[in-house]
Lab assay of single mutants.
Amino acid sequence: EEERTFTNEEEARKAKKEAEKRGLRVTVTKDGTTWRVRIG
Rank of each mutant, 00 (worst) to 15 (best):
E1K: 08
E1R: 09
E1H: 11
E2K: 08
E2R: 10
E2Y: 15
E3M: 09
E3K: 03
R4A: 08
R4S: 07
T5S: 08
T5N: 06
T5Q: 07
T5R: 07
F6M: 02
F6V: 02
F6N: 00
T7E: 11
T7S: 10
T7G: 07
T7C: 13
N8T: 14
N8A: 04
E9V: 07
E9M: 06
E9S: 05
E9R: 08
E9L: 11
E10K: 10
E10S: 10
E10R: 11
E11N: 05
E11A: 09
E11V: 03
E11W: 04
E11S: 06
A12D: 00
A12Q: 01
A12H: 01
R13P: 00
R13E: 13
R13Y: 15
R13A: 11
K14Q: 12
K14S: 09
K14L: 12
A15N: 03
A15G: 02
A15V: 08
A15P: 00
K16N: 01
K17P: 01
E18M: 07
E18L: 07
E18S: 05
A19Q: 03
A19L: 14
A19T: 02
A19I: 07
E20T: 04
E20R: 04
E20C: 05
E20F: 04
K21P: 00
K21V: 08
K21N: 12
K21E: 13
K21M: 14
R22H: 09
R22P: 02
R22V: 07
G23T: 00
G23A: 02
G23S: 03
L24I: 05
R25W: 10
R25V: 11
R25I: 12
R25Y: 11
R25H: 13
R25G: 04
V26R: 00
V26A: 12
V26W: 01
V26G: 03
V26Q: 00
T27K: 06
T27Y: 09
T27A: 04
T27D: 05
T27N: 05
T29I: 14
T29S: 08
T29A: 06
K30S: 13
K30G: 06
K30Y: 15
D31Y: 07
D31T: 09
G32P: 01
G32Q: 03
G32W: 01
G32I: 02
T33P: 13
T34M: 12
T34W: 09
T34Q: 10
W35Q: 01
W35Y: 06
R36A: 05
R36H: 10
V37W: 01
V37G: 00
R38P: 01
R38A: 10
I39D: 01
I39H: 03
I39P: 03
G40W: 15
G40N: 12
G40K: 11
G40H: 15
